[in-house]
Write a protein that binds this DNA or RNA. Sequence first.
DNA 1: CCGCTACGGGG
DNA 2: GGGTACGTAGCGG
Length: 800
Amino acid sequence: MPSKPSVAPQQTCSVKFCLLDADYTTDKESGKTIVKLIGIDEQGNSILVLDSSFEPYFYILSKKGKKKELIEKLEKSSLVTRIDEVSRIVEGNEEKVLQVFVIVPASTGKVRESVKRLDSVKGTYEYSVNFYKRYMMNRGIYPLDWLEIEGEEIENETAYKKVVKAVSIKKMSSKELPTLNVLAFDTEVVDKKLIMISFVAKNFKKVLTYKKAKNAEVCKDEKQMLQRFVEIVNEQDPDVIVTFNGDQFDFEVIRQRADELNVPLKLNRDASVLKGVRRGQTTAARLQGRIHIDLFPFIDTVLAPQLQFEAITLNDVSEELLGESKTDMSFEGMLQSWKSGKMEDVVKYCLNDSKLTIKLAEILLPQVLELSRASGQLPFDSSRMAYGTLVESFFLRKGVEHNTLAPEAPHFAEVEKRRRQRPYVGGYVKEPKVGLHENIAVFDFRSLYPSIIVTYNLSPETYNCKHKDCKTNKVPDMKHHFCTKIKGFIPTHLKSILEHRQEIKSRMKNYSRGSAEWKQLDEEQKAIKILANATYGYLAYAGSRWYSREAAESAAAYGRYHIQQTIKDAEKTGFEVLYADTDSVFVKTKKGSIEKLAEDFQKKINKSLPGILELELQGIYTRGLFVPQKIGTYTAKKRYALIDENGEVTVRGFEAVRRDWCDMAKDLQHNVLRLVLQNNQSEAVKKVKHAVEKIKKRKVTISDIAVRTMLGKELTEYKATGPHIAVARKLQKQGHEMPQGTVISYIITKGAGSISQRAEPTDKISIKDYDIDYYLHNQILAVALRVLGSLGYKEEDLCY
DNA sequence: CCGCTACGGGG
DNA sequence: GGGTACGTAGCGG
């Protein structure tokens, strides 16, 4: 960090750059806290801007008549630099509060701690807002803003093209995204040692390893490979580094190996060494000057709920988002190749992972950046944040922009208490009419919960207000009421982003679908949708500042009320209601055109809905299969499959076909489902019968019937013995090493005892050993009956 | 039935 | 660095 001004006469300069990252540091000489703003200019040069004009502070609301006493006490503290008196809205009321400035960010908590119990203190506020976040909020700066900086350029020996000490910072209006230099990398690890590293950027790809290999740079050993890794990152000088699970895996291994092998990890632009930052139970790899975007946490927290992959693996995610998968090679295959020296396979495998990662980044990075813009959090943070914190940072900003102090964050005991609350009643579910149906229309409420929060003014401060007229405004089937006179904090700002989203959507109409402008606007509106939808959950989130279980509970009650009304109206109109869940209703008609009837119904309902509530016609389907939600004690969330007139199939909730099912069973269910939707039940039954025969006559391969499970931890750490653990222990006794991460492939054999006792490793088994009965009833027929059972088929119908 | 622990992704 | 995930499956009591 350059802290000294250069000896040469300082050069005044002006730069315009797009903000990508921020941090802060304390200058050792002056003791001042310096905010670091990191970004790139129009030419793609990396810029570091230093701003020492911002001071840390927090707020105190004093008790009546005790202000003087409090100020005197505060002035005695060596940590306090000055005290201002300002006007802010506190819990709905305008108050005069003390703004207490302190020497360094860490002092806010210390000073607050020393005064919070004084009887002159009524409340303390915003003492735990991170300094760079505080800075961005107060200055109205959002990530990806273009900033115009006037200042002095400082000589530096860092990888930044320019380091500027800011004198003034102005926001510009451009919303353009800069061209970023993005580098993806992936490592392969065997026995906790790095064996290979691959990189892919726009015009660059490389593989490092230390066994002789074609198409790779062959290093002397692991240490030299790590050194080359550092060199290559610096040569490529990326603005963004992308990984898939780099926080918890790749960077973690790299750090450990670099430690062991004594390789300084100078990956940062300021020439410092990589450090991990604690984020909850996990560590994130945060680089200085380069944003490390780990796609895994982003997909896990933000995208997973909207998508339908079975697991968040690079393979499944790539298949869904890119329509392509990893190479045909399995991990075991790769391992085999490494051990036997078939290096071209390993190189291909490793490089492909980086290729997929960068392709995913092409799609996901714009989403991360728009989410940053919408939430006000840096890309590094917004890509790792859980919904609760993401929503909260948005409202914190709105508070600052509207002179409103955020409620104090709940303390540990309070969070615990909130967590222990009995769960409240959620959305309404109408059990599906099991079977195959035709001429189906699906309706859903557009952004149901956000619309309800806005329409009914649900917010912590509007709950059970004192106004006489509001008291009759009861939530359906609840004792609660919400204010009808004064707009609440949450509904006000939620409404404004919903309107902003509509405005973006109407602007999108000016561009042709799929154009660059259209795509950027689309990402922007999707990011806002994510925030808006998460606000409902935020009201009931235990860590929330704007916590109101009553508001969340009421949103659910209003939701149930409206969906039930819609069901009643649909029935009155002559539809048969097949299924309903929370915000969607599935109906069918026996006579007339489903399209026409559905459109008329939608219009009619919308005329009767209050506020901003709106029912949408989600789609028309030629055929649909609905299966029971309860099978024994197991309750599926949503389980149906639909086909439209173009033959497009939508499947929900059959995902129970995951682990513990063999490939043959998985494939069979897939085929059966499609055939049923194509109204070809006889062919579906034939397929099942055929599979049954194959199992009975042992005309299958081991791989068809193998179940694969990975050892998630060391074998000794398992207390419970599932089938894969039993197999692993058997293998270990035979002298095989069974480290964490070993994939156990097993089949169930004939004989007596539990499934675990009868599980055997695949490599020692012949096709005559498997238990026909188990595969018939617990795999093939089980999976087939999930689909065909709802159509009245019994086991005996599916066997010859 | 409840409460606790371990897990995920990566290799 | 006053930012310390999170929701759930599966086990044992």
